[in-house]
């Protein structure tokens, strides 16, 4: 379902080139829960950004559901991000202006769904992650764990082919972390949701069905 062929990513800061990924090859099958681990700066987040079409690779190809992302137009990439990918960030990235319900409904609204229908779906997903009592709260009025669970609901609302999670427990205490990771595992187990989770925390990896270790921008043997 996801295939990375000879992918490199080099960041340039002025004269300095910082390689994040080097000639990386990786296959992820549909329904897998993959945990990507490695030291800080090994390219974990970059890998996730490439799969989620948040940035293009410097070299190589990224294939998702049989489509090579480099061949897609700007418009197609936007639709791909909207319809096929759900992203959960370390810093939650909820819009402070919107309630949790509205935040979760946002991708559906952007997809063009009727406002009420989108909110109804959001309520369902928020209930799924245990936030039915926080629907009309704004992000700064709830805890970090609750914010992250709302972000998960938002990532799921459009029925993505792949759920990408970038250090989703990095800002959470252990209890909240466990709750969030449990949700990912349940989604994968019960719904067959493909999940790619990036984390440096060893306990996060324990929830995954497969572990990929990165070292200096390559998959470690």
């Amino acid at each position: 379902m996801i295939r990375l062929i000879g992918v490199s990513k080099i960041y340039r800061r002025g004269e300095v080139a910082v390689p994040a990924l080097r000639d990386l090859h990786l296959d992820i099958a549909a329904g897998e829960f993959v945990a990507v681990t490695g030291k800080s700066g090994c390219g974990k987040s970059t890998l996730l950004h490439l799969i989620g079409a948040l940035e293009p690779p410097t070299a190589g190809q990224v294939w998702v559901e049989g489509r090579e992302l480099g061949a897609l137009s700007d418009q197609e990439l936007t639709l791909f991000r909207r319809d096929r990918v759900g992203v959960v960030f370390q810093s939650f990235n909820l819009l402070p202006l919107l309630t949790l319900e509205e935040n979760a409904a946002l991708p559906r609204v952007l997809q063009g769904a009727p406002y009420e229908a989108a909110r109804q779906e959001a309520r369902r997903w928020l209930t799924e992650v245990g936030l039915e009592h926080r629907l009309s709260h704004k992000p700064h009025q709830v805890s970090g764990g609750e914010m992250q669970r709302a972000a998960v609901a938002r990532a799921l609302i459009n029925g993505p082919a792949v759920l990408l999670a970038d250090e989703p427990t990095g800002n959470l205490d252990s209890a909240a972390s466990a709750q969030v990771l449990e949700i990912f595992a349940r989604l994968n187990r019960d719904w067959g949701q493909t999940v790619v989770l990036v984390s440096h925390a060893p306990e996060a990896a324990a929830y995954a069905s497969r572990l990929v270790r990165l070292h200096d921008g390559r998959v470690a043997a």
Partner: peptide, 16 residues
Amino acid sequence: ERELALLQALGASRRQ
């Protein structure tokens, strides 16, 4: 800027 980038990441088009 961050919020707008997020909206794009969530699939908002440039036009939107």
